[in-house]
Amino acid sequence: MNHAVERYLAPTSLTQALAVLAESGGATVLAGGTDLMPQSRAGRVKFARTLLNIRRVPGMDMVEVADGKLLLGALVTISTLVDHPLVRDHAPLLSQAADHFASDQIRNAATLGGNLCNASPAGDTLTPLMALDAEIELVGLDGTGVLQSRWLPLDGFFTGPGRTQRKPNELLRGVRLPVAPDDQKVAFYKAGVRPALDISTISIAFAARRRDRAILHDVRLALGAVAPTPIRARRTEALLEGKALTAELVRVAAASAASEATPIDDVRASGWYRKELVLNMTQRILEDVGNN
């Protein structure tokens, strides 16, 4: 084992935590540990000299609605996403996706911020949040020790498997997304070989508003585990925008979604199989939306 952690800290304020991150040599951030523990033991992640537990930082587990946005702190657990009434009411797509995540024990420990910063293309909160136009807040201290905050669209945050726009001195503080409009239709689909404890073979998150005459607006289709990062299928979104779902449009859109997926072959599935899944499941999702 390669465990050379020289110092463990669990600061009780955000500024203290950020000051530790700003030190030379930086720190390895610990939230729920459900990625960090297995990844460090497998030698896939090397610890920095300092292990920085952020779970004692107050306020980072908040769930709130303000100014038409749902605000979720980075330390909100996946279980909270499943159960919390504000999340269920205002982001049902995210709640549904969280319910398909790992097992109860892992949902109780795993955090939203950890899922986003781990940046797996198969991360189960990533596609729903992209489909819901979520933004994330990164905070850090500038050279004079003053707290700086920047908001980024989640779409664009991921730069590769396990890689994000987060700078080493920054923490992800939270996520915000518009509360779901009344006429929003959503669907989440996760393919795996068994219902629980399975990393997604692919995942699809769909959101759109449907007003009179069944016309779709603000269409979002996000695909997971079909590219180095989760992606928005923008050409397919454009095909669907402003249209009513006909059998022909469903067929064309599903084919388009499959063509936007560029999956690899790996232990979970071949690239060919993943594209077939995207095609068939996009078709099923759109048929369901059309029929309801």
Binding site: A10, L30, T34, M37, Q105, I106
Partner: peptide, 16 residues
């Protein structure tokens, strides 16, 4: 009060 996998939890995080 919440169930977790103790194999995934850092022991230091038990503090308090």
């Amino acid at each position: 009060g919440a169930s977790v996998n103790s194999c995934l939890m850092f022991a230091v995080d038990c503090a308090g």
